[in-house]
Computed example of a mutant assay.
Amino acid sequence: MSFKALIVEKDEAGTTSASVRTITGDRLPDGDVTVAVEYSTLNYKDGLCLGSGGGLVKSYPHVPGIDFAGTVEQSDDPRYAPGDKVVLTGWRVGEVWWGGYAQKARVKADWLVPLPEGLSTRDAMAVGTAGFTAMLAVMALEDHGLAPDRGPVLVTGAAGGVGSVATAILSHLGYEVAAVTGRPEQEGYLKGLGATRIVPRAELAETVKRPLESENWAGCVDAVGGAMLARVLGQMKYGGSVAAVGLAGGAGLPATVIPFLLRGVNLLGIDSVMRPYEDRVRAWSRIATDLPLDRLAEMIRPATLGELPELGAAILKGEVRGRVVVDVNA
């Protein structure tokens, strides 16, 4: 069994390089299920793994790709049989375990989720880890009382992968969505996803001395972190929640505890990597019903394995809009 894979290698000087190679199945890691991969995606972590590794990749040669969708080819686990359609996100696949940037993958059965009815494997990877994370964020906000009649919901980093899907989902569910972006040229794109208001990034990027400002937002999906997250916390309505999903603006949080103490604001951490199976099934079921496929199509930029090294560098610079869907067989 031979197949194509995007292999990242590191030389003695510590320099990495990535290229598409033909390899044999005996190089795949041990696992319960072998999947014929059909589609993968590009995420910020993938950009790191395609380049320096960002401390995520532990050994080389390596196959990145933190998510994939495809068809079971062989299974030693009774939960899956040849022909089953499956999705994988997280579990450090594509980081410490060979991932989805190949025509074949071998993984543990516990890491897989059945593909929900109504979604194709291409749809699933248009969603990918970014969209899965976005849905987890929306679910967490709802679980903490968010409803459309509570007021507008802010989405930071809205033109990115998580932000794009969060904007589309929230709009479809009837929320008024305010989309934050530092790229004015993306206004039409974001309004097409359902945003009703565009907030320039500069309006929220500066830290202010006041711990509380006017109560503007009933909820927030934050992919930026840093000073912007601190600023947003001070603008939340009483009892509002922020779902923190990323750190594009930095890992620090120059905030005070005042929003938590005086307004009962909730800061909800969203992890998609080690999420339990039941949560994964619930989130994918919601994606199949609450993410309009026509808006999903607006986010997609198709790509091949050979284009990924260049796209990986671009996503680290914030130059990738929406979702990159990788056809590993193209």
Results as ranks from 00 to 15, higher is better:
252 G>D: 09
248 A>Q: 10
186 Q>L: 15
235 Q>F: 06
203 E>I: 03
259 P>E: 09
245 V>H: 05
198 I>L: 14
199 V>W: 11
223 A>C: 14
267 L>G: 00
208 V>H: 10
190 L>T: 00
210 R>Y: 02
207 T>E: 14
265 V>P: 04
269 G>C: 02
266 N>Q: 15
266 N>G: 06
257 V>K: 04
188 G>A: 13
197 R>A: 14
264 G>D: 08
245 V>G: 10
260 F>C: 12
250 G>M: 08
184 P>M: 05
199 V>Q: 12
179 A>E: 14
177 V>F: 11
213 E>Q: 15
236 M>F: 06
280 R>S: 08
253 L>Q: 13
201 R>N: 05
208 V>C: 02
255 A>K: 03
252 G>R: 02
216 N>I: 13
242 V>P: 11
223 A>S: 15
187 E>D: 15
192 G>L: 06
196 T>E: 12
212 L>I: 00
184 P>A: 12
219 G>P: 13
193 L>V: 12
190 L>I: 01
235 Q>N: 08
264 G>Q: 01
231 R>S: 02
216 N>S: 13
174 G>E: 10
252 G>K: 01
179 A>Q: 09
220 C>L: 12
182 G>L: 09
209 K>P: 04
196 T>A: 15
256 T>N: 01
211 P>Q: 03
204 L>Y: 10
220 C>D: 14
209 K>C: 04
182 G>E: 12
274 M>V: 12
189 Y>P: 09
215 E>P: 14
263 R>P: 05
222 D>I: 11
200 P>S: 10
246 G>R: 01
207 T>F: 03
195 A>C: 10
270 I>F: 00
222 D>M: 06
246 G>S: 02
278 E>Y: 08
205 A>R: 06
262 L>Y: 07
255 A>H: 00
208 V>Q: 10
268 L>D: 10
237 K>W: 06
269 G>H: 03
176 E>F: 04
198 I>R: 05
208 V>N: 01
178 A>N: 07
237 K>S: 13
201 R>V: 05
267 L>K: 09
239 G>W: 06
194 G>M: 12
217 W>F: 02
242 V>S: 12
231 R>G: 03
276 P>Q: 00
176 E>R: 15
233 L>D: 05
188 G>R: 02
257 V>G: 04
256 T>E: 00
269 G>N: 04
272 S>K: 00
177 V>D: 11
202 A>Y: 06
183 R>F: 09
206 E>C: 10
177 V>I: 13
266 N>E: 06
228 M>S: 12
228 M>E: 13
247 L>C: 11
276 P>V: 00
259 P>Q: 05
196 T>Y: 04
174 G>Y: 08
217 W>K: 01
215 E>S: 15
217 W>V: 02
282 R>I: 01
216 N>F: 07
253 L>W: 10
222 D>C: 08
211 P>H: 02
211 P>G: 04
175 Y>P: 06
238 Y>P: 05
189 Y>K: 04
255 A>P: 03
190 L>Q: 00
224 V>C: 08
187 E>H: 08
215 E>G: 08
246 G>A: 01
238 Y>V: 14
272 S>Q: 03
176 E>Q: 15
256 T>A: 01
281 V>A: 01
283 A>L: 07
193 L>Y: 07
180 V>F: 05
242 V>C: 11
192 G>W: 00
253 L>S: 07
282 R>M: 01
181 T>K: 11
